[in-house]
Simulated assay, not measured.
Amino acid sequence: MVLSELAARLNCAEYKNWVKAGHCLLLLRSCLQGFVGREVLSFHRGLLAEAPGLSPSATCRGGSRCSPRARQVIKCRNEIMHSSEMKVSSTWLRDFQIKIQNFLNEFRNIPEIVAVYSRIEQLLTSDWAVHIPEEDQRDGYEGETGSYLSASQVNEVKIELLKEELEEMYLQAEEQEMLPEEISNRLEVMKEFLRNNEDLRNGLREDMQKLDSLHPPNPKRDSKEPGRETPERKD
């Protein structure tokens, strides 16, 4: 049942594009975390060296700055995370490929980026066949630039993307950055998707319960109209 559900989803090219783009973003995040952490630590140490009296707990009030290329990648990431259908077109994916490659070119001197650059490029340009052991044939084909992912690898990518989306929704709900109705609508879309995909539902049960704790179902409205009493029944 699980494999048949996965195979059905992977028959949709737009869904596969969505997972490919999400996989690229996860790879990008993993390779940037170490670099960003080192840069922030170095910057903080530089501030303390220039201002010895500055408290270690001091905060900067300057606005955050992102390069135009970084903003483009962030925009793509938001489109991926907020895609209710979890699908993107091939045209969107080609545009995403250009934007992410332009962004990566700014960091070609960073070892972590160099290590993952070829993986991201191959993923975006390959036919990206998916091997399902119990099936008679593989989804897609393996050409010169082709690569295979196992069913479990696809599910791992998908679950990680959905976990990130649910965590974002939880933080937005907790900080009241979104209207309760909007959060509820997005949560209902997610629930509907998971109801139709058992292979993903079990891996996200705790995350869904955590979000539900902030947005419990609305109580049923009383059938009585406000200010009016139900007339007594006469025998």
Rank of each mutant, 00 (worst) to 15 (best):
V2L: 12
S4D: 12
A7V: 08
A8F: 11
C12N: 15
E14S: 11
Y15D: 04
K16N: 06
N17S: 05
W18M: 04
K20T: 10
A21S: 07
H23R: 13
H23Q: 12
H23D: 08
C24L: 06
L25C: 06
R29G: 13
L32I: 00
V36P: 02
G37P: 01
E39V: 09
V40T: 10
L47S: 10
L47E: 14
L54Y: 06
S55V: 05
S55F: 00
C60I: 14
G62T: 13
R69A: 09
R71V: 07
I74L: 12
I74D: 03
C76H: 12
N78Y: 10
E79A: 10
E79D: 12
S83Q: 04
S84K: 15
S84H: 13
S90E: 11
R94G: 02
D95Q: 13
Q97L: 12
K99W: 02
I100H: 00
E106M: 11
E106D: 15
I110Y: 07
P111D: 03
P111K: 03
E112K: 03
A115F: 09
V116M: 11
L123M: 06
L124R: 00
S126M: 06
D127A: 09
W128G: 00
H131M: 08
H131W: 15
R138C: 07
D139G: 07
G140V: 03
G143R: 03
E144S: 14
S147C: 13
Y148H: 11
Y148F: 14
V154T: 02
N155F: 10
N155V: 06
V157I: 10
K158E: 15
E160F: 07
E160V: 01
L162C: 05
E167M: 08
L171I: 10
Q172N: 15
A173T: 10
E175G: 09
Q176P: 03
E177M: 12
E177Y: 14
E182H: 14
I183G: 01
N185V: 09
N185I: 07
R186D: 07
E188I: 08
E192A: 13
L194F: 03
L194C: 04
R195H: 14
N196C: 08
N197L: 09
D199W: 14
E206R: 15
D207C: 04
M208C: 05
Q209E: 15
K210D: 13
S213H: 11
H215Y: 14
P217D: 08
P217L: 05
P217N: 06
K220I: 07
K220Q: 11
S223H: 03
G227V: 03
R228P: 00
E229T: 04
E232I: 06
K234L: 09
D235S: 11
